[in-house]
């Protein structure tokens, strides 16, 4: 291939956000290198649609490459909720790599990403509890607290835990927390820094393995993918899939460390969740996991096996690190 192809990526996050600066930009470099400079991806100055539209932007060819959150389009993606359940793991790298592996093994055949060329999947670091009011050491501390959440399983879990869920987009967090409309957020540590919340948040409670997670996709317009040469396609896939999950997961983990440092500097009091609280969360989450397994069954997927495989894979990866 001699002709140069330029692909347009639409990003709904600001250029300095870790996803853009530490995951997309390096990946774009890798694509360029792997294709010997024949595939060039540019990030548009502004998104071509709202965050939830980014799956359709790639499907309809409005943009060539996009990334997004499965949970932003409720009702569309069921199986990807496997990556949203509590206690998955302590590192985004392990979760994301394991996620791609079990996706290929169990979930891909259900074809939930029909209409796009799926390039990669990932999750952020373990989601935790942060608030401006009091240390959370039991479910009683959480009762009635107004928590901003981003949708997906965590929304139902928040309500089940006795808190009041305010479902608003992530960029609204600053407005909600700084004005006191919300008392807290469920976020990975990274987001406390990137949404500038450290000066308002006073308390953090860390749940081992994470309270929740968010499932992301990286996708491409299928016609644009088909138009590339076989060599170019292979080159792109060689730096996507599990390779991307590993690279992005490491970046998430670094961003979480930076978030932790930011909170320490701001004097946020961070504690580990006591055993009773973890037990309480597990009890509330169990029926939700059961409901997911039942729903997955209707799509011909053995959800129970998926979750077991997923957790075993994560444990294996975390142990090997």
């Amino acid at each position: 291939a001699s002709a140069e192809t330029t692909l347009r990526m639409s990003s709904w996050l600001p250029p300095k956000h870790p996803i853009v600066a530490d995951m997309m930009v390096p990946w774009i470099e890798e694509v360029k290198k792997a294709t010997n400079g024949s595939v060039n991806i540019i990030i548009l100055p502004k998104a071509l649609g709202a965050a939830p539209a980014h799956f359709d932007l790639a499907k309809d060819g409005i943009a060539d490459v996009t990334f997004g959150v499965h949970g932003y389009q409720p009702g569309r993606f069921l199986l990807t909720q496997a990556a949203e359940v509590p206690f998955l793991g302590n590192s985004s790298e392990a979760i994301s790599v394991a996620y791609w592996r079990i996706f290929e093994k169990h979930l891909a055949k259900a074809n939930e990403h029909e209409g796009v060329k799926l390039l990669a999947l990932m999750t952020h670091g373990p989601g935790q509890m942060f608030n401006t009011q009091r240390p959370i050491t039991s479910l009683a501390d959480l009762a009635g607290m107004k928590i901003r959440v981003g949708g997906g399983l965590i929304n139902d879990l928040t309500t089940a835990l006795g808190a009041t869920a305010l479902l608003k987009p992530a960029p609204a967090s600053y407005e909600l927390i700084s004005t006191g409309v919300a008392d807290g957020v469920f976020f990975p540590k990274e987001s406390i820094k990137s949404f500038k919340l450290a000066s308002f948040i006073k308390y953090g409670t860390v749940v081992p393995g994470g309270l929740y997670n968010v499932s992301f996709f990286l996708a491409m317009n299928p016609a644009k993918f088909e138009a590339l040469t076989k060599a170019e396609q292979d080159a792109i896939m060689s730096v996507s899939g599990e390779h991307f999950a590993k690279m992005a997961g490491q970046a998430w983990d670094r961003a979480d460390k930076a978030g932790q440092a930011d909170m320490e500097a701001a004097g946020v009091e961070i504690i580990d969740a006591p055993e009773a609280l973890v037990q309480g969360i597990a009890e509330k989450a169990a029926p939700m996991e059961a409901a997911w397994i039942a729903a997955a069954k209707e799509k011909g997927i053995d959800g129970d096996m998926v979750l077991k495989d997923f957790r075993a894979e994560i444990a294996k990866l975390e142990a090997s690190n």
């Binding site: 071509l48 649609g49 709202a50 539209a53 359709d56 932007l57 309809d60 060819g61 409005i62």
Partner: peptide, 21 residues
């Protein structure tokens, strides 16, 4: 610049998401 099908999808998406914003 991009293609007519993409442009149709673009106006469709803009109309839809601006309405439900």
């Amino acid at each position: 610049l991009i293609g007519w099908d993409a442009s149709l999808a673009m106006v469709r998406n803009v109309t839809y998401e601006t309405g439900l914003h």
